[in-house]
Nucleic acid binder design. Structure first.
Length: 328
DNA sequence: GGTAGACCTGGACGC
DNA sequence: GCGTCCAGGTCTACC
């Protein structure tokens, strides 16, 4: 009999809103089911892989209101109910809870989110503030590498293939496993292209301890030291470094790419060369200070939702695969 | 310090 | 069905 366990969340936490807040929720091994509003993923735990369904039952037991895209749709503050597909040892429940807490940003308490809404009240009514990420820094970095120099549907395929070909039981591959993979396998079977050697090199650096996640996650590590360290990693340039910084909860940099330029031109009415527009976007969001990325991102996210409907209705195989800059 | 071209894949397009 | 072109961020060589 599988062991169900619960995870307490901040009083304003909504699984539906806060999980569907960044594109990685659509990437394998994550699976969001819009019908049940549950997140399922395989976690590679001490005793082996376990598929866990994460739900946030409404406290009143009633189904969510049919009207969507309104703050009233969200369940808030109820404990997360986690159902694994096998019995977990106590230590594994602790391990899984930690990984899920990182992924869902449960460390962003209500006070942190209120502080953000003071700076940018536009997202207060809906309560947006948390950004979905991966259970580990390693997965966040590899996912970022798979999102560079490629359109979104290819990123979806690369992550699907990495989990299916290298990951154990459908989990995201561990650094040790990926470090042992052959470049030719990653290229031919996971479709990662020229990123093959860079992914292996990054995995080796994690496996050997050359990249220390604790140092990267430590608030005492300065922003500048962290950015310098990240940008020196193989396959990581200015865009990827800024994106990894936000995944680490440091929101003062913007990962500027062609999508930013599109937003600058189409929505903010900016004109000029791509480089000039990137500078303008950076200046435009500067007033949000340490929350810069959140404001930039939720503005983009709102635009996607206007085009494709609320993010919690998106699915990887349909809406999730159609996201390319050229379609907006 | 700035810039051009290569890297690889998948989709769009023309024949 | 095939060939060509293009988009995407990083890296290297070169000025």
């Amino acid at each position: 009999m599988p062991t169900q366990f619960t995870i307490p969340v901040p009083p304003d936490y909504s699984l539906t809103r806060d999980a569907c807040s960044y594109g990685y929720f659509l990437l394998s091994p994550n699976h969001w089911d819009p019908r049940t509003e549950t997140l399922t993923r395989v976690l590679d735990l001490e005793g082996g892989p376990a598929r866990i369904v994460i739900a946030q039952p409404r406290q009143d037991g009633k189904p969510a209101p049919a009207r969507i895209s309104k703050a009233s749709h969200f369940t808030r503050g109820a404990d997360l109910a986690c159902t694994p597909d096998r019995r977990l040892a106590k230590r594994e429940i602790t391990e899984a809870s930690g990984l899920i807490a990182r992924m869902l940003r449960l460390d962003d308490d209500a006070t942190t989110i209120r502080a953000y809404h003071k700076v940018d009240p536009r997202f207060k009514a809906l309560g947006r503030g948390r950004l979905f990420r991966s259970p580990t820094l390693f997965e966040d970095i590899i996912k970022t590498v798979t999102s560079c120099n490629v359109q979104w549907p290819s990123t979806v395929v690369m992550n699907e293939r990495l989990c299916a070909v290298v990951g154990e039981g459908g989990a995201f591959p561990s650094a040790r496993k990926l470090a042992r993979a052959r470049a030719s396998t990653l290229r031919a079977r996971c479709r990662v292209g020229y990123r093959d050697k860079r992914i292996i090199e990054l995995s080796e650096m994690f496996a050997s301890g050359e990249i220390d996640p604790h140092w990267c996650e430590d608030p005492a590590t300065s922003d500048e030291d962290l950015r310098k360290f990240l940008i020196d990693l193989p396959g990581i340039g200015p865009y990827a470094a800024a994106n990894i910084m936000q995944l680490l909860g440091r929101y003062h940099l913007l990962p500027l790419d062609t999508e930013s330029v599109r937003h600058g031109k189409a929505i903010l009415g900016m004109e000029g060369s791509d480089k000039a527009i990137m500078k303008m976007i950076d200046a435009h969001f500067a007033p949000f200070g340490p929350h810069k990325f959140r404001s930039y991102w939720f503005e983009l996210w709102e635009f996607y939702e206007q085009k494709r409907g609320p993010s919690w209705t998106w699915e990887r195989e349909t809406t999730g695969k159609t996201f390319t800059a050229s379609q907006f």
